[in-house]
């Protein structure tokens, strides 16, 4: 089957900075795909190349089998991108903007009237249809951006950090909406600051760092590949962690700490013995399976800043 997105050996340089170093991967039709990486990893550059906003130096990108350079019209017609920044044209109302956006993609107003109405309702924009964008809150503007990306009914949708800076309620609403789009057959590509978001929504995940692909796996395989469990402890008393516990320490704040415990090489009882020997008394203990964030930190060597 034709891939929804086929990214092949893509390079991009900005002067001395090699922003993308031969990135290649495929995203199949109908996938809910997460693209993660720390700031400066190359995610936005890659998305901009797919969308035609940035020119690549080498490699090929195809959307639903259409090359983004030689068959740019078909490639763009199959793609909807929700930009990261809240960008809007101040002259027009929500409804006017959606009509114009559909028109750019060759869709006459009558052709998309029902779908536009559906989008306005699904994104709670129906009563704002005659408002100009500058009159709307940040969350509402974000919804309009999503509607603009979808108004021409693209089969492939890229959401570039759609929930950055939005409140919890809107984030939940957007999660629910993207799940619905996915159920209805859209291929969804999500970049996000929130790893829990990727964990909750995505089926397959790519991790980019310094312009290179560090991981590309099913979410469950990625999580399963991590050989550690996390031991969360609450302690009391004075004591100093020895070198063995320091090496396992993942997080410590006040009397709470998290230790990474290797599934096969370390036993919980032994770890607790070392803890007691350090002079700390155990108050509470909780074991949990690794989260995407733990794997992200391990792979990129930094905190999960998306």
């Amino acid at each position: 089957m034709t891939a929804a997105l086929d990214i092949d050996s893509v390079h991009k340089r900005y002067g001395a900075l090699h922003a993308l170093k031969g990135v290649s991967f495929r995203i199949e039709q109908g996938e809910f795909f997460g693209l993660l990486g720390p700031n400066g990893a190359g995610k936005s550059t890659l998305i901009s190349i797919i969308a035609g906003l940035v020119r690549k130096d080498a490699g090929h990108v195809a959307v639903m089998g259409h090359d983004t350079v030689t068959a740019y019209r078909a490639a763009r017609a199959h793609l909807g991108v929700v930009p990261q920044e809240l960008v809007y044209d101040p002259f027009f109302t929500v409804e006017e903007l959606l009509r114009l956006q559909a028109g750019y993609f060759g869709r006459r107003p009558a052709e998309v009237a029902d779908w536009t109405e559906e989008l306005l309702n699904a994104l709670d924009l129906a009563d704002k249809r005659r408002s100009k964008l500058r009159q709307l809150s940040g969350g509402m503007k974000r919804r309009v951006l999503i509607a603009q990306a979808l108004v021409h009914k693209p089969p492939v949708v890229i959401l570039d950090e759609p929930t950055a800076g939005v409140d919890v309620e809107l984030r939940r609403a957007l999660w629910s909406f993207t799940r619905r789009l996915h159920r209805e057959g859209h291929t969804i590509v999500l970049t996000t600051h929130y790893l829990e978001e990727a964990e909750a929504l995505c089926e397959r995940i790519a991790i980019l760092d310094h312009g290179e692909l560090l991981a590309l796996e099913d979410k469950q395989d990625l999580l399963g590949r991590h050989p550690y469990r996390v031991m969360r402890l609450r302690t009391e008393g004075q004591g100093t962690l020895g070198p063995q516990l320091e090496a396992m320490l993942q997080f410590r704040e006040g009397d709470v700490m998290e230790l990474r415990v290797h599934r096969e090489e370390q036993r919980v009882g032994d770890v607790l013995d070392v803890l007691r020997a350090s002079g700390l008394r155990l108050v509470d203990i909780e074991m949990r399976e690794p989260k995407l964030e733990d794997i992200f930190v391990e792979l990129t060597g930094g905190p999960g800043n998306g």
Binding site: A51, G52, L53, Y72, R73, A74, R76, A77, L79, V81, P83, E85, V87, Y88, D89, P90, Q101, Y104, F105, G106, Q148
Partner: peptide
């Protein structure tokens, strides 16, 4: 204006030559 406000992206991402 469309460059400064950023909304030129909607035009650049469209299938217009």
């Amino acid at each position: 204006q469309s460059k400064i406000m950023g909304h030129i992206v909607f035009l650049l991402m469209s299938p217009l030559s």
